[in-house]
Design a protein around this nucleic acid. Structure first.
Lengths: 339, 339
DNA sequence: CTGAAAGCGCTTACAG
DNA sequence: CTGAAAGCGCTTACAG
């Protein structure tokens, strides 16, 4: 049973190719009973439309792309991206879109991946995760009119001509600062990633503002840098043992993973949590529910962000004239690592 | 700057459409210098081949699909699949294939996803992860001649007509049994998932064989069932507190996640690891390097499996007459949770 | 080495 | 409601 063309199939069941096309696409032009009949026959003979041909005519691929950040390592390591991916995937099921995962990667020869995907027209639209685009890339998007929804800002300059749904990470930092600031005897510490400087600055700014409400501030020597990785954070805290063993500290970590590393270090150093060290992570990745002590964190409002993003992208693809520029508010979730 | 067709572009630079096509596809038929010239011009004018049209002619999509298991929840929860996905993604970069992620899902109306993807011809080939296929589905693969490589068996009957690279999980269980069996004073326990009965049985069988080499056996009451989840395993162990508090135990967990749950429970119950309880997980997911105590586990040989699978699928797509039926040997990695 | 022409398998005005 | 016909944007024998 080789693949059949619509012409062959049409001949086989005694209708025209046009009618087959219309029936397979559920066009109201052909009466329901006939539609049903043709679809049943299609099933019987194993006929299906060839989607390359369909795409060529309709200029639709029925697939959307999820573009991962430039320096993204992998799903196992960046659990927040993985979580967002999971949520998008689930939400996208209601629309009948397939999902293409695109890893930026400079790709060596020819065009870089992003350019290639846009030019080659393989997807109807994009979700772009934590991406900073160059001017050339923005021009590409505009020239080719590719529907794009940006999610999770990478910080830096925000282009108002693009559609985005970001989590207000400065506000997240503010919430943490406002909470930790109330404990006068705890010295504020910020541990952050070298890799994501700009968003890190945003979170830090919020943290400072929150602390200020209690007249507190953070010393320069209490801003710690490490790689974006549990073990790096653990090592970093251990290297600063004197700081943490010497006084009570209130630590905001740039991400949950760093937070987990901080907690691990504290356990190794015998520093009681939260009595001598309070820790707040950021993001609220699913992993947290498996780890003890349960990490206090700033929860990104994906419940709102995901449905809005998907709806927006679908609207953009259908040429509806919409735009969206939103900073969603995260919220603080108190668990075991704070008082 | 709207999209240009190859005909328009050809006219613009004064060659024929054929030559443009050949140049863009790097055909040796056109001299290198001319090829270069045309490609440069293409870049200049922002011309690129329309891949729907290319696909229609060549019957290639330049994309491969990764099909996730039927009851797959999400990447965040099933970290071994996530890890495999990461490895495939990285390996696939050398070939210029795009990746489509396909979640099985019965999809309600019309064809189920798997059938749809095959019939619609959206991918050139598949990786199929931990999948049990029905006869109808195997027939579909054969009828449509879709290149498929099966990875990570879901247990049950293995179809020799399909290409597969599986991890020999029975052997993995055997390694664990052979290691733990030598500790006469530790009572063997197997904790496993209700969801993956068949592969679970395979691991169990190996475990039993390994134990037998030391004349040991596992009591029926020492086979524990729970959901495939850290917290479920933790609860399960706590419910059986009497068993674990009463005697020294040597636990093989169906997966690392269950192993982590067992360790958490032990810590909560104040059972010292590995002195009173030894624990071995299975898979060796990347997460383990972030968790203390470091879990002893049976490491799946992805270093070998991934390159072989990719090479195999590429060969199948290029119609090379190859086949492969392999069970790769995992190995035991001793860490903190065993003596 | 190059170009004119046919055709990949659909959709969709258009005419009936 | 239905069909014949044109055309989506490429590739590739074929002829030169």
């Amino acid at each position: 049973m080789a693949r059949m063309t619509s012409r062959e199939f049409a001949k086989l069941i005694g209708v025209s190719q046009s009618t087959v096309s219309r029936a397979m696409n559920n066009s109201p032009l052909v009466p329901l009973s006939k539609r049903q009949y043709i679809q049943d026959k299609a099933k019987e003979y194993g006929f299906a439309l060839n989607y390359q041909a369909v795409s060529l005519k309709t200029k639709k691929n029925n697939t959307i792309g999820i573009l991962f950040p430039k320096h993204f390592l992998n799903m196992s390591t960046n659990l927040m991206m993985t979580h967002i991916y999971d949520c998008l995937q689930r939400e996208l099921k209601q629309w009948e879109y397939d999902v293409m995962v695109i890893h930026y990667g400079e790709s060596g020869k020819d065009d870089p991946t992003f350019e290639k995907i846009i030019k080659r027209n393989k997807v109807d639209g994009f979700f772009v995760l934590r991406m900073e685009l160059s001017d050339a890339e923005v021009k590409l998007i505009n020239d080719h009119q590719v529907p794009c929804v940006f999610m999770m800002n990478a910080g830096g300059h925000v282009r108002q001509e693009l559609n985005y749904l970001f989590s207000d990470s400065e506000y997240g930092g503010y919430l943490a600062g406002k909470y930790l600031g109330q404990f006068k005897e705890y010295e504020p510490v910020f541990i952050t990633a070298e890799e994501e400087v700009k968003d890190s600055r945003r979170r830090y700014r919020g943290f400072v503002k929150g602390l200020e409400e209690y007249g507190r501030e953070i010393k320069d020597s209490h801003i710690l840098y490490c790689h974006l990785d549990v073990n790096a954070a653990e090592r970093c805290v251990i290297e600063h043992e004197r700081l943490f063993a010497g006084e009570k500290t209130a630590v905001l970590a740039y991400s949950d993973l760093l937070g987990i590393g901080v907690v691990k270090a504290a356990m190794r150093l015998g520093i009681p949590i939260p009595e001598q060290m309070q820790v707040i992570g950021m993001d609220d990745i699913p992993l947290l529910k498996w780890i003890n002590p349960r990490l206090t964190t700033v929860h990104v409002n994906l419940e709102e962000m995901i449905p809005l993003s998907c709806r927006l992208l679908m609207d953009l693809i259908e040429k509806k004239d919409v735009e969206m520029h939103r900073w969603l508010k995260p919220r603080l979730i108190l668990r075991d690592t704070t008082i």
